[in-house]
Design a protein around this nucleic acid. Structure first.
Lengths: 327, 327
DNA sequence: CTGAAAGCGCTTACAG
DNA sequence: CTGAAAGCGCTTACAG
C-alpha cells in the first residue's frame, strides 16, 4: 500500500492537518513538529498524492499539448521546448499526436477536459475543435489562427515565403515552382504560398503551385514532386513549404541528374536542428521554435491566471533565412 | 462553474448514484432513466472529472514516458508511436524530456509517482533512477538494461553493430573508425561498439574508437569528427553510432574534399523516417521503432495488470541494414 | 501552535 | 431498478 498522509501523521504523532500544513508550508508550525513530520515522511517514503490535491485545489498543473506528430522534427522540437519550459515552471505535459485528424483532435480535447488540464497548447489546423464544451478552457493556438477568442502564436510565415521567393529570384531563377501541404487545412503553409504568389506576380512571373494532398505519406509527396518535373521541365527554382519536402525535391532532382544549385535551386522551410544536421546544405527559412514555445506558454499562463486584459491576440515572431548550398 | 454529477442528477431527477451507474454502465437501469440522464448531460455539457474518478479507482490510466529529447528524431518517433498506441488503448501519456541528466530523471520519476501514473516507459541510461521509492511502480526500460527487476525492450544493438562493421569490411575498407556517444552512460551504443571491436579483431584489424562526450552539443561532435580525420588521415570507413552523427561525418568528409563512397564509406544507426527522408542516401542500421513502442507497451500493461508470471525479462528486436549510397 | 470536521467529484457496497 | 452513506487522499476554514 502506498503511504498516505494519515500514515505520516500517525508516525509523527500529529494530526493529518498538521502534516498537510508542513507539506504546504502554511500556518505556524513548531520547528520540532516540522522535523518530526519530515522524518516520518522519509521513514515510510511518503509522496503526496497530487491527484487528491488537484481534486481539492481545482488545479492540476497539467497542460495538454496537441501536435500533429512528434516524429516530424519540427513538432518534435516544439514538443521538446514546450515540455522543458513547462517542467521548469512546474507544469506537466500531456502529449497528444493528432495527425491533423479532426476526429482525433476532438477526442483529445475531450480527454484533456476530463483530465482537468489547466490549459491547452494546440498546433491544429482544423477549426472548431474548441467549441461549446470548452468555452472556459484556456487555449493557445500555435502556428495557426483558430478563432477570435483564442490567442495565436506563430512565426512570420508571410515574410518567410517572401524571403524564400525573393532569394530564388535574386539568384536568377526564371521558373519557380512552389510546393505546399494540403490547402484544405488552414496551415501556415497557406501564407507562405500567398507570399510566393504575390512576389511572383510583382515580378511578372507566373506562379505555379503544387499541393501535397497528404502530409504523412512520403510516396504521395514523391509522386507530386515527380509530376512537377514532368510538367515543368523548365523549372529552375523550387520553394518547398517544409524541409522534409525540400529533401524529397533534392532527392528527385539528383535522380534526374540535375545539378544543385546550378540547374535547380531549392529553398525549404522550418530549419529544425534535425534538418540542419542531416541536410546541412539546405537553404531554408528557419522558424524560432524555442521562442514560439516560450511565447505560447507565457500567454497560456496568463490565461490560466485569469489575466485577460493584457493578452495579445496574435503574436508573430520573426523568421531567419539560412542560406546553404542549394541556392 | 463546471458541471458535476450532482447537477446532472438534479436535472434528470435522479440521484448521483444513478448518474454514476449510467456513466459506468453498471447495474440495472431502466431505459427511461438512462435516456433522461444522457439528455441532462448533453444539456449542461457534462464531462466526468477523471481526476475524481482516479482518486477513487486508484487507477489513472496515465503512463509516464521519459525520453532524452523529442527533438532527436529517434526519440520523437518513438514518442509518437508510444503515445499513439497508448491513446488507442485509452491511456494518456505524460511527456518527460530528461536530456539524459540524472537529476532531471529523478525529478521526473518523483513527479510521475506523485501523479499516480499507472506505469512508466523510460529511455534512460542512468541506473538507479527507479530505486527505493518506486518499488511497486510498473516500469519498462527501452533501449537499455536498468536492473534485473525491470523488463527491457531494445533492438539488437550487437547485431546492428556487427552488420555495420561487416558491411564496411566487405566493401573493402581497411581503416575503419567507430564513433559513439558518451560511454559513461550505459547506452545501447556500447553494444554497437563492442560488436564493432569484435568484428575488427576477428578480421585482424585495429579497432579505433572515438567517443563524443556530449550528445547534445553539435560543436563538440564536429570537433571530435574533425579529430578523427586529423589523427587518422588513412580512414576509409566510419561507423557512427547514430544517423545525426553520421550526417556530421558526411559533412566533414565533404568539406575535406573526400568522395563518398569512393574515398570514405559511412554507416549510421537508427534509420528514422526523418533521417531517411532528409539524408536518404545514408547507409544505416534501422531500428524497428514502432515494434519497440508496441512491445514496451504490451509488457507495461501486463505489469500493470499484475501478470508478473509471463513477463519476459529482456526482449531484443531485430534490426535491418539499409544500404544507401554512402557505402 | 494544533486538531476535528467538512468537502473536492466521484464510485461502490449496502439496503430497500 | 434506485438512493443514502461512506470513503478515495488531500486541504482549508474554524475553533481552541
Amino acid at each position: 500500500m502506498k503511504a498516505k498522509i494519515s500514515d505520516v501523521a500517525k508516525i509523527a504523532g500529529v494530526s493529518p492537518t498538521t502534516v498537510s500544513r508542513v507539506l504546504n508550508n502554511r500556518g505556524y508550525i513548531s520547528k520540532e513538529t516540522r522535523e518530526n513530520v519530515y522524518k516520518a515522511m522519509k521513514e515510510i517514503n511518503y509522496f503526496p498524492n497530487d491527484i487528491a490535491r488537484s481534486l481539492f485545489n481545482k488545479r492540476t498543473n497539467l497542460i495538454g499539448m496537441i501536435v500533429p506528430q512528434t516524429s516530424n522534427p519540427f513538432f518534435g522540437e516544439l514538443a521538446f521546448h514546450i515540455e522543458s519550459i513547462c517542467a521548469s515552471l512546474n507544469y506537466k505535459v500531456l502529449l497528444c499526436n493528432s495527425l491533423n485528424r479532426i476526429d482525433k483532435e476532438k477526442k483529445y480535447v475531450e480527454m484533456l477536459i476530463r483530465n482537468q488540464v489547466d490549459g491547452v497548447i494546440a498546433v491544429t489546423y482544423n477549426r472548431g475543435i474548441f467549441d461549446s464544451e470548452s468555452q472556459s478552457l484556456p487555449v493557445v493556438a500555435v502556428d495557426h489562427y483558430l478563432s477570435k477568442d483564442i490567442p495565436t502564436v506563430s512565426s512570420d510565415n508571410y515574410s518567410g515565403g517572401k524571403q524564400a521567393t525573393e532569394l530564388l529570384i535574386s539568384k536568377g531563377c526564371k521558373h519557380i515552382v512552389h510546393i505546399n501541404g494540403p490547402l484544405k487545412l488552414e496551415t501556415p503553409a497557406n501564407l507562405r504560398r500567398k507570399a510566393y504568389e504575390n512576389v511572383m506576380k510583382k515580378d511578372r512571373k507566373q506562379p505555379i503551385t503544387y499541393e501535397i494532398s497528404n502530409t504523412f505519406d512520403r510516396n504521395i509527396q514523391r509522386e507530386t514532386i515527380s509530376k512537377v518535373f514532368e510538367e515543368h521541365p523548365e523549372v529552375d527554382g523550387i520553394f518547398a513549404s517544409d524541409d522534409l519536402l525540400a529533401a524529397l525535391v533534392v532527392a528527385e532532382a539528383q535522380k534526374r541528374g540535375k545539378n544543385i544549385p546550378r540547374d535547380l535551386k531549392i529553398v525549404g522551410y522550418d530549419g529544425t536542428e534535425a534538418s540542419q544536421t542531416l541536410l546541412p546544405g539546405l537553404t531554408t527559412v528557419q522558424q524560432p521554435i524555442e521562442s514560439i514555445a516560450q511565447t505560447a506558454i507565457d500567454i497560456l499562463l496568463k490565461e490560466i491566471e485569469g489575466e485577460f486584459s493584457n493578452i495579445p491576440r496574435e503574436i508573430c515572431l520573426p523568421v531567419k533565412l539560412l542560406e546553404g548550398q542549394t541556392t
